[in-house]
Write a protein that binds this DNA or RNA. Structure first.
Lengths: 191, 191
DNA sequence: GTCTATATTCTGATAGAC
DNA sequence: GTCTATCAGAATATAGAC
């Protein structure tokens, strides 16, 4: 994947920022062009149509996330791997909250043109969590619930992270990471 | 809150089903009218405009959820209360997956006309989780992270529940509830 | 209360000059 | 590669008959 620069990059960035607050359907190509500082014709020169623009956006974003998670887990095992994944995911949510909002909104949509592409990348990103969970909780591995549990853990970090950034931004990242890990680490259940 | 019946009810139900798959912005008033089996004029007779229709929809849905959670927790404490809340929320997600999808998509939008209304109800629903968590994890209560932890737990159930309904519908509800509770109950962390 | 018909605005997309 | 101008269709909302 060659890195995107120049006009194309500006358009993708503008589209991401707009879609994070207004949603994809609520974002118009006119707005994208204006925020990117180019004419609408240039948007259509770089992307076939609106669907293709947002497909490429999601593909790049989720693809990069999956790669970062893979690196974060490499060499680690069990609870340490889960800690690293949670911390890394939270970091990505902080640095790219626009993409996080977009993912939360799009993750369970089943009517998109790019559904298949997104599903594959989603599966890849969740797979990192599932693998770490299978190591840490053998019971989950045996009855095949690793992926389901991975979704729960991912959801905990995503919702917790967005709660932080949107409603309690005064907290430190360390505090938020620790809080989420406590919720997942059995602190809720008495010994 | 008087229960809504007849035409108004049909319109709200149609709007919910459509918005669950196409999103609110992607749902047109023509489609709502058609699915509800009424003319568009009747939609505008019952609701001032599109925003007001969906505000009422979200208000009813999230309000009912908050009430159900309150009942589920009453009389219970500590981990038992959390178990009951998780199980009840999962049940609501199963029975009303359309609303669950809508909530996931709308929860962190900050540009909606009805943002304030939704925020208050969201806070109310999360408050049930936060209260149970404050009892169960005194540390969270002391440093004021109960609400943040509540968001994480809510996110775990919501994402886990939707993963189940959208991607692994062959599983039983009991199995899903147990899996999510394991993730939250410290099964991931070695003793 | 419900309908049909219509006004008006918005939006995705294209054509063609530079 | 980028721009301006423009079209065709869609979407919100209203008016007025029944």
């Amino acid at each position: 994947m060659p890195r995107v620069t120049g006009t194309k990059k500006a358009i993708l960035e503008a589209a991401l920022q707009l879609a994070a607050t207004k949603g994809i359907t609520g974002t118009t190509m006119d707005e994208v062009a204006e925020l990117a500082g180019v004419a609408k014709g240039s948007v259509y020169y770089n992307f076939t149509n609106k669907d293709q623009l947002f497909e490429e956006l999601m593909e790049q974003g989720v693809g990069a996330l999956a790669e970062v998670l893979r690196e974060a887990r490499s060499g680690l095992h069990g609870w340490s791997a889960i800690e690293a994944l949670v911390d890394t995911l939270l970091g990505r949510i902080q640095e790219n909250s626009a993409l996080a909002k977009l993912m939360a909104a799009e993750m369970f949509r089943t009517d998109r043109a790019w559904q298949k592409t997104l599903f594959a990348l989603r599966h890849e990103a969740l797979g990192e969590f599932a693998a770490a969970i299978a190591e840490s909780a053998p019971a989950a591995k045996n009855n095949g619930t690793s992926e389901l549990m991975a979704s729960s853990v991912f959801g905990a970090v995503l919702m917790g992270g967005l709660e932080w950034l949107v409603f309690e931004p005064e907290r430190s990242r360390e505090e938020v990471a620790a809080t989420i890990l406590q919720a997942l680490g059995g602190q809720l259940r008495p010994a």
